[in-house]
Amino acid sequence: MNSLILRVVGRLLVPLMLLFSVFLLLRGHNEPGGGFVGGLMAVGAFGLYSLTYGVATARKALFVDPRTLVGLGLLLAVISGFGAAFIDAPYLTGVWFVWDLAPDFTLHVGTPTVFDVGVYLVVIGGVLMALFSVEDD
C-alpha cells in the first residue's frame, strides 16, 4: 500500500508498538498483559510494517524467519517446565528466584517468565508466518 499517511505514521508507530509489546510481556504477571497479548502487539507492529513497506522489508526487519521463532518459542516453553525437576516437583511447576535489589524493590524471576517468553515468541512466529505467507501470495 503506497499511502503517505501510513508510511509516516508507521515509521513512528512501529518502534513504539514493539517497545510496548515487550512492556506488556514483562508486566503481564502483575498487570493486564502477558506473552499472548504482547505477542499480538508485536505481530500488529510487523503487520503494519509489512503493509506499509512490503513483506520483504518486514521479513528483513524481523531478522529471523517466523518459523525459527515458533520453534524457539516452543522449545523455551518445553524447557521451562523441566526446571521443576530440580525441586522434585511435577513438570511445569514454577520455580522462582527472588532478589532484594533495593530496599523497596524485589525482583521475582521464575520459570513461568521463561514460559511466557516462549508463548510470546510462538504467537509472533505463528501469526506472522500466516500473515507473511498470505501477503506474499
Partner: peptide, 24 residues
C-alpha cells in the same frame, strides 16, 4: 495461563504453531 494451567497453554501455543505452519 503460565503457571496454574500452563500445560493447557502449552497445548494452545502448539495449536497456534501448527495453524501457522498449516497456512504457510
Amino acid at each position: 495461563l503460565v503457571d496454574f494451567r500452563a500445560i493447557d497453554t502449552m497445548g494452545e501455543i502448539l495449536v497456534l504453531a501448527l495453524a501457522g505452519i498449516g497456512v504457510f
